[in-house]
Write a protein that binds this DNA or RNA. Structure first.
Lengths: 206, 206, 206, 206
DNA sequence: CATGAATGAGCATTCATTCAT
DNA sequence: AATGAATGAATGCTCATTCAT
């Protein structure tokens, strides 16, 4: 497979399947031993293939991590947006956003752990951390959340507040649960979800 | 320097100065190139010393990182708690907590970046990520925040809400600003601070 | 090559050849510069390969040394036992044992030097020197020697003596030639061999 | 202390005491962890001093090992020769030589272990192993042993045999006991001693 | 005399990557 | 498409030695 094939869109069916398999193994590896120790050989071991095959299907370790990250983001977006779109009211959408986000963390915590490992560890060749890379266009979820908030303000359901700050706060509150072990140990995810919905509801109220 | 001296409290003045210098260089290194690339030789380069000297003053790379982490946590705690204690009302204390936390991030963002790098990258020998290690006793700031919230509920200044959830949410909201580059680019820290204070104020109101 | 392959019996032809080559280079290295200085890079230099390739074919430096030791012991055992088994009388077997042992030292003195270097230098992780590890089962040559002595006593060819002591003495006398440079310089190996045969013959006589 | 002082004969009393102390610590270290791991810092630790002080009192690690070796050889020579000289007959002297040699090993097995570690591990800068260095003049014990054998042959107490070979054989038989763990475990030193005396007695008989 | 501080050289090992097959 | 073989570069760490104090 030449350099082009590795990044171009069209691959053979078998090639695509291999890439998928490698990405899944990488997710498992990141969850189990963390980014620092997640060497290609550790990933290959979990995939049951040789390291060389990873290099064959991805230009680079970086390339693999990028694809992996895209896949992880895509999945969580699909899950959360699907739940949001099912609701018709702004309040319903906001609640759905929060609940679905936390649900996803609980159900696919392996994915979430892998996501955290990548975002906080991987860096571009210029040493820019991935978590600082966030491009407006890419941040689909944040965009959706802001849209809900703006719509709520427009319809009078929500009061006056800085949408960017409120959205950031909500995302921080959601993400913190996974990360803050003191809370994780003390409060179960259902309680956290419903309490958070209440608090945000009050904070956004007109 | 023998094994004991490396961890015992009393060191010579010059030795203590070197340790300090190494720790500062390590902070700089973590901020600049991230945990993954922060090798002893990179740290040594920034400190202008030999790698061996780091090994001489710290038993281990792990030992260095632990001391560094302790120092970083200690500093931010001192800064924030000092500001909180200056206030007399619960509302004042809560606002001070939020503002001081964000101020610290803005003023010492190198320290904060280093803290993030360590917490999300370092793992114990059993592969437990540092961010999952959080021990109740160690989490001084979270404890203080909960105390403020409980006092506010007791005095009637704050309404009814789950203290653990509210505290976690506030911490998430504070931490997110540093991490969420979209927001960092769009909203300056003063705006974020004051808006967050307003939102939390409304959310906690009786 | 995965962890398993390194120790399991079946390897590819080319892999086995490389392992052989590395072991031979290690023998040469031990003979030339001794165990203490026999680093992987010194061995690699003599094998004309990279250090990493040694790590690829052996799990460990220890693993390499163990394989090397096994090979050396095996070779000397094969050589000596073959010569002993050609003889039919106990006296013939005893003499053959002594002569073959000294012949082996003379012919393959590089191997013998390497053997000495390993046995007296290598230690287990618990600091037990290899030369103190000798397990009855493993000491094939000592066992064979004792068998000859016992058979000779049974048949009346040999007189009464403590078999363990006599066998140890013979082994000591054989090994000493290589080690004692004063004697090595003064007495050639053929003289030493024939004289030792005479002396032992007298000592064991009925 | 300048370069000269380190090797010249006359040192201050305190300096001589320190050297003694270092040498004793080195012996202990060699016995406990073997030559390979016997770093200056390990020796210093056992002596309760700093590594720099060893470098101050000995030009070199090699220098320390040479002095240590001399001391060890000297001690065993004194012990054995004293016992030999107490006897008047050649047979008595020969037996005393064997018994005293084995006694020394039993009584001072720490010293003996250290001796073995040095002789088989240390090498000159030209990579000549110490065990191949043996100079006729230095080998006082071998010389004494040969003298006894020659005297015995002269007086008619002993028969005809090659003195060099017989002496080497006896030394090998003595040394083997310490080294051969199979025998060490099976035969106690008293039995080995008396049996060896009997065997040698028969082998040397007129 | 004695030490703490410091270093350059060397160590075994792991890693991402390449290449012939 | 897949692998085993191979490597150069880098890592954390230890060592013997030096030197100012």
């Amino acid at each position: 497979m030449n350099e082009n094939n590795k990044t171009s869109g069209k691959q053979s069916f078998i090639s695509e399947a291999r890439r998928e398999q490698i990405i899944e193994a990488a997710i498992k590896t990141l969850d189990e031993i963390g980014y620092v120790k997640a060497s290609l050989s550790q990933i290959a071991k979990r995939a049951g293939i040789s390291t060389a095959l990873i290099s064959y299907h991805f230009t680079d370790k970086n390339d693999l991590m990028n694809h992996l990250l895209m896949k992880l983001i895509e999945r969580s977006e699909l899950y959360i947006l699907e739940r949001v779109r099912r609701e018709s009211t702004v309040q319903g959408k906001l609640n759905a956003f929060i609940l679905a986000s936390l649900d996803y963390q609980g159900k696919y915590h392996t994915h979430n752990a892998a996501l955290i490992e990548i975002i906080f560890n991987a860096r571009t060749p210029d040493n820019i951390p991935y978590y600082k890379l966030g491009d407006d266009e890419e941040e689909v979820l944040l965009h959706e959340l802001k849209q809900i908030l703006r719509n709520g303000q427009g319809s009078g359901d929500f009061g006056a507040f800085n949408v960017d700050v409120m959205a950031t706060m909500i995302q921080g509150a959601i993400g913190e649960y996974m990360i803050n072990s003191v809370t994780t140990k003390k409060v179960d995810i259902e309680t956290y979800s419903s309490e958070l919905v209440n608090i945000i509801s009050k904070a956004t109220k007109a």
